[in-house]
Amino acid sequence: MLWGSFALFTLVLGLFLAAVLVPRFGRGVSQTRWIILGGLVLPLPVLTGLTFYAFAEGEFLLKGAVSEADEVLEIRATGRMWQWQFSYPSVSGSPVHTDLLHIPAGRTVEIIAESEDVIHSFWVPRLGGKIDAVPGHSNRLRIRADQPGRYGGICSEYCGTGHAGMQFEVQAHRQEDFREVVTGGFRHD
């Protein structure tokens, strides 16, 4: 997308400069042909390809790289001014974690984003995707960390004066450690 944009930008600007600076440039092409070529023939295939590729990619991201729903681990993320609380409905005996989200590496996780007050937005830049936590709604987002590690997360919808500080951390653990970490039985470091 970046290189395609760069090519289109160079083309349009090049044509502009050539038309202004080079005498008689482009006069051999009729005005109608200029418009048809540049306004329809050039952008239509590009846009069509891009749009439909994006649809397919969107479907892929929505499903979170899994085909069966039961492979997905559900985690509830509740935003409030100005912290995130994470709970694990499918892991019995797990306490609520504040501003710290544990996920198993190599498994797709479904975040159920909810809010107790105003609109927040759950975003872990390196894991991709973003979902708003809208009061009165439960929105779902599937993410997946392939490797264990730490990832920074941040609220990306303006939610008042504490917005800038509403950060959290995601820790992806090996699958075998995950349950213990969540229930508090395992000290990672």
Binding site: T51, F55, L62, E110, R140
Partner: peptide, 15 residues
């Protein structure tokens, strides 16, 4: 034709 093509296969409702 372009805007509504998605109705043929994209996810219809929230998961």
């Amino acid at each position: 034709a372009f805007c509504f093509a998605g109705v043929f296969w994209l996810t219809l409702c929230p998961l």
